[in-house]
Structure formats: C-alpha cells, structure tokens
Design a protein around this nucleic acid. Sequence first.
DNA 1: AATAGAAACGGACTGCGGTCCGGTTAGGGG
DNA 2: CCCCTAACCGGACCGCAGTCCGTTTCTATT
Lengths: 196, 196
Amino acid sequence: MVDLLPLVGDPPPERSDAVRNRELLLRAAHALVARCGVEAVTTDAVATEAGVGKGTVFRRFGSREGLMTAVLDDSEKAWQAAVISGEPPLGPGAPPWDRLVALGRSRLETTLLNADLIRAAGGFGRRSGPAHLFTVLHVRHLLRELGVTGDLPMLATALLAPLEVPLLDPDLRRADFPVDRVLESWTDLARRIVRE
Amino acid sequence: MVDLLPLVGDPPPERSDAVRNRELLLRAAHALVARCGVEAVTTDAVATEAGVGKGTVFRRFGSREGLMTAVLDDSEKAWQAAVISGEPPLGPGAPPWDRLVALGRSRLETTLLNADLIRAAGGFGRRSGPAHLFTVLHVRHLLRELGVTGDLPMLATALLAPLEVPLLDPDLRRADFPVDRVLESWTDLARRIVRE
DNA sequence: AATAGAAACGGACTGCGGTCCGGTTAGGGG
DNA sequence: CCCCTAACCGGACCGCAGTCCGTTTCTATT
C-alpha cells in the first residue's frame, strides 16, 4: 500500500551490479588513456580491461563517445571544485569580470590538455555532458552579475565556443600554439559581449 | 630540358579518369541523398551507384566526411553567387549592417535545411571546406566595412558559431524550432561585436 | 605508333562500433 | 528462506569506414 504513486519518481535506481560495472569501466578507461593514449580505448579493450562483456559498455554509456564524455566529466570534477570554492580569481571572491577572464584562461588550458579526449567524445566537450553544462551555467551567472541583459544562454555559448576544440583546431596541431594571443582576442570578445 | 624547376608548381594536375570519377561520385552522392536520405550514403552504396570501386571514393575524397563536405560545398555554390552578385540586402548594394543581418538569417536557414548532411560532414560546415571558408571571409569583410577593429578572424568565427549545427543541436530536433527568436538573439550578439 | 612509368583503379580484407538474445543474478514479497 | 520477475550480463554477430596491393589506364616522350 506504500508507493502507490511513484508517478514522477526518479527512474528506478540502478542495481548494485550495474553500479559496480560502471565504475569498473570508468577506471579501466582512465587507466587505458593514461597508459596507451586515447586511441587505445576501443570498446573491446576497455571491456576486457574492466573484466566485463562488451555489451555492458554500451548499456552503461550508450556509445564510445558516451564513455569518453563520462571520463571527461570525471576529470572535470576538480576544476568545478576550484570554481565553486577555490582561490580567486577563478574561485569566488574576485570581481565578476576578473573571474570571467580567469575562467577563459583556465578553460583554454584544460581544453588544450584534453584535446584528444575531447575529440574522442565528439568534438565539443560533448555539449550534453554535465561538465560542459556546468561551465555554461557558471558563465551565465557571471554575465548576469556583470549586468548583461539579453539571451544569456546564447551569449554564454557564443563566448565559450571559440575556446572549444573544433573551432581552435586548425592552429591546434602546431607545437607553438599561441595561447596568449588567443586569450587576448578572447578577452576582447568578452569585453564586447559585456559591453564593458 | 624544359621543366628543370617545377619547384613550386601546383601539385601535378589530375588525370582525366580521376576527374571523371570525382564527378561520377559527386553526382551519385547527390542522387542518393535526394532519393534515400543521408543515411543511405554508405561508401559502398555511393561507389556502386557511381559504377566505380570503393577505393576510389577514398582516393578522391579521403573519407566519407570528405565526400559529404564536397557535396555540401557543391550545393553552396548558388548561395555564394547570391552573396557576390545577387539582390540586396544579401548581395552587394545594401549597407554592411543590413548585409550582415541578412547573412545571418540566410545562414541559419541553409543550416537548418542541410542539418543532416552537415552532421554527416562532421558537425561543423566542416571547417576546412571552401564553403565555410567563404562565409568566414565574407563576414570578416563586412566587419571591416563596419569599422570593427581587433582579431577579425576570431570575431567572425565567434559570430558564426551560434548558427552552426552543433551549437543549435539541443533545440534543433523539435519541430517548432524558434527561428525568429534565435535570429533576434543573434542580431543582438552581432550588435555587441560590432559595438553598434 | 610504340613504350615506359607514374598514377589511378577495384574489390577483397581488416578492425571497430554497435546490436541482439539466451542465460544469469539481484533483491523484494510471500 | 525460497521464489519470481525484472533488470542485467556477455560475447557472438553484423554493417560500415577505411586499407592494401596486384592490375589497369592514362599520358609524356621519342
């Protein structure tokens, strides 16, 4: 007689073996990336490494891209913590504009660092992934604090786009990627959007 | 004794059979897209339709994405003509700002129309393809005419990005895609970048 | 016209992403 | 404690992108 209306309850929770396998796979993927590079993370390889069947990879993550996105999201946890409660200017405490500029630099560096993984996750920080969502939300927040009005979601997206792998790509291969020049241009773009 | 220094000559021209097969394949791809949709354009299918071997697809276009990009570039010819010598406000004759706004609307419409093909070409209008290059160049030109200073390539890219499939995608599935609302927001973004 | 060699051809072959279904297991109710 | 069912597991299987190499075709040269 309990539970008569699970109507809008979250979809039923995962079974314990499902949870276990998800973590096994995530660890295995991380290990493979670290040991042999992104290319080596084939669905067969990661399943074997995790000691599960291949089907499980797809049941847990939907696709290879989904798995990569999960790996990425996982390693963004630290960055999110830094934004939420780390040192200024990235963390709280600094003026919004300074936080925004710091965020730009930080995003660019992270993107450069994980370029391979990002590509394997579908080019963008897999726009659906929680990590990217968090970033967009935070930029919206900063823009609002800066008094920007208008279609904030779109402005945030437009501002972040030039820091994403697919838009950086042409220059990205070269060893002498001009981080500072890009960042300078990006700051100018931000100034325009904020109408500072 | 002639030709002692072909040093910086264009890479040798294509052989006649190569040219013929490129066109056969391009026509075949167009036909298949029109007849059965983008999904049906497998490399085997397009090779068979064109009456050539599968290897030829890859020798001419490098990859399936390359082929799709070529198809796309091909169907953008008309649009480019409209920009270069068509009616205002898209074509020459109108004030730069009006041309820019018209270009935005036109790009969005084309993107919506070819969304499937664009996805198959690798998400972005395949940033390397001539078609996309043309658009970026033209926007740079308009921005310059509007007196914008700064990193024009980046500003042009940032301005066009929100009209690309990968950034539109979440909303894009729905039948009631809000073209006008998106365009309004986009115009606002353009105003900011131009600092009008 | 004959020839040589560079380039292109074609289709069998490989490897990987993704699906499918018969068997297994978790875990709540009796 | 046992049983029942829904959810999960695994790995054989499939289709497609991309490669490889022996064969054919083009074209510059004589």
